[in-house]
């Protein structure tokens, strides 16, 4: 399973990469910048996304919208609370930093399952 990872902090990105890889995911990224993440998504299908909301320039939902548009499930892993989420992401799971590795894997699995069910 290919999981896109977008996180601008190197240490957190590297930690999350390890967690996802240990759970058997094939990690696309990590990417610190929107432009790189977008070009990766444009190149080929990913199965799920783990997205930080703030890549150093305040909250941004460009990547979330890009994944939504491509019908790719994703979760947020962020320092923000739900109140910053625009209404169209009400259904998306949000994990608060520091993220517990087990919760992250569970959330990714849940997002993928939910997506499969909704497609049937």
């Amino acid at each position: 399973m290919d999981v896109l990872l977008v996180e601008d902090d190197y240490y957190l990105a590297d930690d999350t990469r390890r967690v996802l890889a240990a759970a058997g995911a094939n990690v696309a990224g990590p990417y610190a910048r929107v432009a790189e993440s977008l070009s990766r998504v444009a190149q080929g299908r990913v199965d799920c996304g783990v997205l930080d909301i703030n890549l150093g320039e305040g909250p941004s939902f460009i990547m979330a919208r890009a994944l939504k548009q491509r019908d790719v499930p994703f979760v947020f892993a962020t320092g923000y609370g739900r109140e910053v989420l625009p209404d169209d992401f009400n259904e998306v799971e949000l994990l608060e930093k520091p993220v517990d590795p087990r919760l992250l894997i569970d959330a990714v699995a849940r997002a993928c399952r939910k997506h499969e069910t909704s497609e049937v």
Partner: peptide, 14 residues
């Protein structure tokens, strides 16, 4: 407040 929350959580994670 959101911004502060974000910074504090991020800092803890770091």
């Amino acid at each position: 407040i959101s911004e502060l929350q974000h910074r504090v959580r991020n800092l803890l994670a770091v």
